[in-house]
Design a protein around this nucleic acid. Structure first.
Lengths: 228, 228
DNA sequence: CCAAAAGTGTTTTAAGTACACCCATGG
DNA sequence: CCATGGGTGTACTTAAAACACTTTTGG
């Protein structure tokens, strides 16, 4: 492809990096924060794990690229995807010069995805962020960045809605916060805060059938990103 | 240039967007927050104004690209440059498909830059963010984003150090905050807060020669980014 | 002695933290 | 009736906000 020097009127042929998107997909499963990784089974990154990703195409925005690669590789659709940062270390991909725009997304577990296997990708699985396998490219760096963003973002937005089902108990909500922040929170203070913010409301239903007092069920007022 | 499908071992020739960097440079001048713009004098964006920017080269990181294009276009060097966001609207540059990674930077005014004029760029000047000229590309969108980032970042970091000389009075520091936030701050509360944070210290010198009580001069403990 | 900006403390309000017991259910 | 997690309120601490007068200098 000829890249044109777009910033002048003379068309000079120049060379530039390729542009890719990687999607860091988080979920909570069995009281652990996990990310979705795909195992690479050939080439220089053989037996290393990577995020679902792919090259940006000309006729799509990066948001669309992120959505597309996630869907193509995992069948996952309709999730909140958010741009994180662009990574451009010279050696991040030893096979060639690729700049990657990282995105992150959150899904409610268990998510019914199907891996589309190829000769290049075979295995796909969720990994606890506390116990990650050997990562391809600079993906360890990207996951660290994504994890920090997630931790700070749950403090001033409602994004955890994506990690929860439609209805949930306050204890379940608190668990999500505790798992992400990796620390215990005070039950009374947590409930006071959550009910004072205008993010959730009672559905009137209760979680019954367990060997203790039934819990009130709540839902988010809006299932889209809200800042406090 | 042939772009290779970097995410597989088979080398497929694909086409992707070109990658550029744009730098939003802020300063404070005459009690106004200003940004540096260059006037385009030919092509579809003739008579519109744009940030210093340029295409990313293969053998440099985006941070290096940002530093380079800023230096090449303005001779400005050694400023704090920080990645903002990647902009990828399909129609952001009508001449072709270019994704731009925006950076922002802050300089202490007056900065002694020299524009390097070409047939494409001629005029360069500072514009108040409250009164911007017609902007090229999607640069109006980028400046809005950068401005929001700046406003929030001065609340939890020391970045304003780049907008101030080595030594400054607390009133001068407060002015910087008031101009960026576009609101008056309480003098006593501001000073209490600033002196309680461990960001600045007295130099022992005073600003003399003015028709009022001389002001204590302060400097930042560290002239690099610190989070609170 | 006047004008101009520098400098300085206290009170009030809001938000966050710490902390312990009773409740409703299923088995 | 017992084990289990659900649900609740008050006191303390810390940070932010409101607010007005005295000081030092040059002219």
């Amino acid at each position: 492809m000829k890249l044109v020097n777009q910033r002048s009127t003379e068309l000079k042929v120049i060379y530039g990096p390729a542009l890719a998107v990687d999607a860091v997909l988080f979920t909570i499963d069995k009281d652990e924060l996990k990310i979705l990784l795909i195992k690479i089974n050939s080439g220089p990154y053989k037996n290393k794990w990577a995020f679902p990703g792919g090259l940006a195409q000309t006729k799509e925005t990066l948001d669309e690229t992120a959505k597309r690669v996630l869907f193509q590789k995992t069948n996952i659709d309709n999730v909140h995807l958010e741009q994180l940062y662009s990574f451009s270390d010279l050696k991040r991909d030893v096979r060639g010069r690729v700049v990657s725009v990282a995105y992150f997304a959150l899904v409610n577990n268990p998510y019914n995805f199907k891996i589309k296997t190829t000769s290049y990708y075979s295995e796909i699985s969720w990994w606890s962020v506390k116990n990650l396998p050997p990562m391809a490219f600079d993906h360890q760096k990207i996951v660290n960045y994504a994890f920090e963003r997630l931790k700070s973002k749950i403090e001033y937005t409602n994004i955890v809605y994506s990690l929860l089902p439609e209805e949930f108990t306050l204890t379940e909500l608190q668990n999500v916060y505790e798992i992400i922040l990796d620390k215990k929170l005070d039950k009374r203070n947590f409930r006071k805060k959550m009910t004072s913010l205008d993010l959730i409301k009672k559905t009137g239903n209760k979680r019954k059938g367990e060997v203790h007092r039934p819990a009130e069920l709540f839902c988010f007022n809006r299932r889209k990103l809200v800042f406090l």
